[in-house]
């Protein structure tokens, strides 16, 4: 009488695989904005552009990342293009790095092309991406103590 009732698997939550995160439709269209008022404790992964004006405690990965004036970032930034006008404590790794005069960088910069505006505060080492690769990657770099302390006076 009681035949094996087919057990319905409990699926209260939408399965992640069939309901993936929204596909980036046009990531280049408009940047995501972390406003001055917003505080993020955690990591950000962005396939598009990202403007940080607020506080981020965590790592940022993106394509084009702008750390605006007044922004505070505690964590590493990895992107294709990074523009820093705010304060950051952590490693920056990008082929193109621009540091504005209002910036305060405490950490290493790994770059291919680096632009530093006069007046920017840099505390850390600057290394070329290729050199970094020879030196054994990020881990080798992280263990290296920042031995330089300088205030850039020329771009």
């Amino acid at each position: 009488m009681f035949s094996q009732s087919s057990k319905q698997p409990e699926s209260k939550l939408p399965p992640k695989a069939s309901q993936p995160a929204p596909a980036p439709r046009s990531p280049s269209a408009e940047p995501s904005i972390i406003s001055a008022d917003l505080r993020v404790v955690g990591d950000l992964h962005c396939s598009g552009d990202l403007q940080v004006k607020g506080n981020v405690e965590g790592d940022i990965k993106g394509r084009s990342v702008t750390i605006g004036e007044g922004a505070h970032v505690q964590g590493s930034v990895m992107a294709e293009t990074v523009h820093i006008a705010g304060s950051i404590k952590g490693q920056i790794e990008a082929p193109a790095v621009t540091v504005a005069r209002s910036a305060r960088v405490q950490g290493d910069i790994v770059h291919r092309t680096l632009t530093v505006e006069a007046g920017a505060f840099l505390d850390g080492t600057c290394r070329h991406l290729d050199t970094k690769a020879e030196a054994g990657g990020v881990s080798a770099l992280k263990t290296a103590k920042p031995e330089e302390k300088k205030t850039a006076t020329a771009s």
């Binding site: 269209a29 008022d37 993020v40 404790v41 990591d43 992964h45 396939s47």
Partner: peptide
């Protein structure tokens, strides 16, 4: 005014 656009994944807490 903060915007989390398509393509951005935030793993962590937000407060504003």
């Amino acid at each position: 005014y903060s915007v989390v656009h398509a393509g951005l994944v935030i793993t962590g807490d937000l407060r504003t």
